[in-house]
Amino acid sequence: MEGFLFSYVAGKSILHGLDPRVKIFSVMCLSILIFKSSALVDLLVFALLFVGLTILAGSGLSGIMSVRPLLPIFVFIFLIHSFFTEGAALFNSQFSPTYEGLLKGSLVTVRFVLLILYGSLLTSTTRPAVITAGIERILRPLPLRRVGVTSFEIATMMSLALYFVPHLLWYAGQIKDSQLSRGSKYRRNPISGTLSLAIPVLKGSMRMADDVAMAMESRCYQGNFRTSLFELKMTARDVLVCSVVLGVTALVLYA
C-alpha cells in the first residue's frame, strides 16, 4: 500500500513520533490558515512548509505524486472557476475563461491540493488505529452521550470503515463480475447496470454488518468504554509543537 494517497508509511521520523492529537490539531490549524490565504504567494509558503515536513517525515517527494488520481478533480475545479468567474475575457469569444477566473481557479485549486497533501502527510505518518485512538481522545470530553453516541463508538466506526470500505469495493467487484459472466449488459448501459449491482451489494453488506455485529458482541464489545493497544501520552515535544502551531495560527489570524 506504500505510495498510495492517504496510506500509512512506516517510519521513525519526528513526525511519526508525534502524538496523533497534535498532528490532527496541526492539520486543522493549517487548513484554517490555507483557507484564509488569499494570495498565491501565501500558499507558496504552505507548499514549501509541506516540502520541508515531507523531507522531515522521510517519505520523499515521490509521495506528492500520489495525488495523481485526483488530477481530474483538480482540473475540474480550475476550469469551473476559470470559465464561470466574472471578469475580463481572455479570448474574444462568447465562452472564454476570464483573467479573474484563472486567478481564482489557481487559488482554489492550490488550496485544495494543499489540503489533500497535508491530510495525506497526517495519514502517511500515523497508523490508522492511532489516528482513531487520537480522535477518540479528542472527542472524549465532549457531551456526546446526550445525542446517544460515545467517542468509543465513533472510533470503532472509523476502524470498521478502514477495513470494510475496501472490502465492500472488492465485494461489489465480485458481484459485478458474476453479473457480467451471466450476460449483464453493464458496459452498454452503466445506469441500469449500476442499479442491478446496487441491490445485491446492499443486501450483502447488510448481511455482513449483521455478522460483524455478532462477532463484535461475542468479543465483549459494549461501546461505553474501551482501552487501546496504542496508549497515547503527550510528551514535552508534543506540547512544544502544539504551542508553536497555536501561536503561529493566532498570530496570522489576529495580527
Binding site: 477495513y163 472490502h167 463484535m216 493497544l229
Partner: peptide, 24 residues
Amino acid sequence: HSQAVGATVEEDVAFGPENLALES
C-alpha cells in the same frame, strides 16, 4: 471476512482485550 474489525492483524487481535478495558 465478516468477523474482522481492525485494519491490521494486531489491531484486530487487540479488539477483544480493548473491550475488556485492559492496560495497553
